[in-house]
């Protein structure tokens, strides 16, 4: 289980969270008009995905992955988020949510609950997908002597 209070775990949960959920949470945080500065504007950027070829164990560049990072400062707390794809609003919202938890904002329990739901849904989706795949597992038999 991931811990939404842990910065690294929270980053992964925010990245997996539905954009609409992040925007709703961020709007809640901003309702009482806290001091907010944007340290890194949300704009799409690239990650070059490196992979280690398994035979020679040689790294190579597979291709780039589109992501949208953002960073904010909420009061004295910083927040950073990176959302897959071109998703400026979600990235900015994610950074605000990250900073809010770091700052111990009143909405932290709501954020923790939403991120825990995200983790549960993600895990359930993966388990279901795996169960579907395993449902197609097959044993091939050689039929020696039969032409």
């Amino acid at each position: 289980m991931s811990d939404p209070h842990d910065r690294s775990d929270r980053f992964e949960l925010i990245a997996a969270c539905e954009p609409a959920t992040l925007v709703g949470l961020a709007n809640g945080v901003l309702e009482d008009d806290p001091a907010l500065s944007v340290r890194q504007e949300p704009k799409p950027q690239l990650l070059m995905q490196r992979v280690e070829e398994p035979v020679e164990r040689r790294p190579f560049n597979l291709g780039e992955v589109l992501v949208t990072p953002a960073e904010v400062e909420l009061g004295d707390a910083r927040g950073f988020a990176m959302i897959p794809g071109k998703s400026e609003r979600a990235a900015l919202s994610g950074a605000i949510v990250d900073a809010a938890v770091a700052a111990g904002h009143d909405l932290t329990p709501d954020v923790v609950e939403a991120l825990a739901e995200t983790e549960a849904e993600t895990r359930e989706r993966r388990r279901n997908e795996w169960a579907e795949s395993k449902h197609t597992a097959v044993t091939f038999e050689t039929m020696e002597g039969r032409e």
Binding site: L47, R50, V51, P54, E64
Partner: peptide, 12 residues
């Protein structure tokens, strides 16, 4: 677009 960074090489 700008590149944020290169990822760590992942084991397939």
């Amino acid at each position: 677009l700008e590149r944020f960074e290169e990822t760590a090489a992942v084991d397939p």
